[in-house]
């Protein structure tokens, strides 16, 4: 346990150093450009007390969750299809490459133009940004599937659902987890842009408003509160899930 203790101490130390550097920077730059950690904290408390902070974070989280879910499901399905079928691969490869290289901003702006400044447009724009990356990652995993286990499933007459659940998906877990991890951080960043450009609420909208008022304390308060929530999700949900689905893997003693 000394290893875990050491890790904890080092993490706290690095956090303390960041806050210290920030405080020094705030003194040098003045409260208008860079408010002190305490000023940001008090803004955060104010926003929390009024309920606005929680409401905006909740709205943004729902958008992140829905867009992320759509992107992961569609991307995984297309990735498996493309990994298994040559025809599907040849058919979708080029559009996928185009989509992968299309700047997020272009997709967002076009979605708003074509589908109006609506919730659906916002969420779809985010999902479309993430899903090609998931498809490509899962396709790699599908290409590496073990043929031998497929044959076992055939011999013992596994139906489609059983095959997917017990043979295919367990092999894809590392790939889906990699896509999910890079996906979560990508999706929330794009959601903020989408909110800034065309939504009347959410963390991105608040930051946009604060930008117009040059209220740096509010920008930092919202940004840090939201990052804290995302990090908590990563630690409390993504990592335990990964541990659970890979517990069969023999670990180094």
């Amino acid at each position: 346990m000394t290893g875990a203790r050491r890790q904890f101490v080092l993490r706290v130390a690095s956090l303390a150093i960041i806050v210290l550097v920030w405080a020094l920077g705030a003194m040098a730059a003045g409260p208008r450009l860079l408010p002190s950690p305490l000023a940001v904290l008090s803004t955060m408390v104010e926003e929390a007390a009024s309920g606005a902070l929680f409401l905006n974070i909740a709205i943004t989280l729902v958008r992140v969750g829905v867009a992320f879910g759509i992107a992961m499901l569609a991307g995984t399905a297309l990735g498996i299809l493309m990994g298994r079928s040559r025809t599907a691969d040849d058919l979708f490869d080029l559009p996928l490459i185009v989509l992968l290289n299309l700047p997020a901003l272009v997709i967002v702006v076009l979605a708003y133009i074509w589908a109006g400044l609506t919730e659906t447009a916002a969420i779809l724009a985010v999902a479309i940004n993430k899903f090609p990356n998931t498809a490509v990652t899962v396709r790699e995993g599908t290409r590496a599937l073990d043929r031998g286990l497929d044959e076992v499933a055939q011999i013992y007459k596994f139906d489609r659902v059983k095959r997917l659940r017990h043979v295919v998906l367990p092999q894809l877990v590392p790939f889906i987890a990699a896509a999910a991890r890079s996906g979560l951080s990508l999706v929330w960043k794009i959601v903020l842009v989408v909110e800034l450009l065309g939504r009347p609420n959410g963390v991105g909208f608040e930051i946009g408003t604060a930008f117009q008022l040059f209220d740096v304390a509010r920008i930092l308060a919202y940004a840090l509160a939201f990052v804290a929530v995302i990090v908590a999700i990563e630690f409390l949900m993504v990592q335990p899930f990964e541990r659970r689905v890979t517990r069969w893997r023999p670990r180094a003693a």
Binding site: G148, L149, E151, V152, I155, K162, H166, V167, V245, W248
Partner: peptide
């Protein structure tokens, strides 16, 4: 069928490997 290699599902226990088949 028993293949030249055991070909078990590594992510399922012995029990589950048998019960799935």
């Amino acid at each position: 069928m028993v293949f030249q290699e055991p070909r078990l599902l590594p992510w399922r226990t012995v029990d589950d490997n048998i019960r799935l088949a």
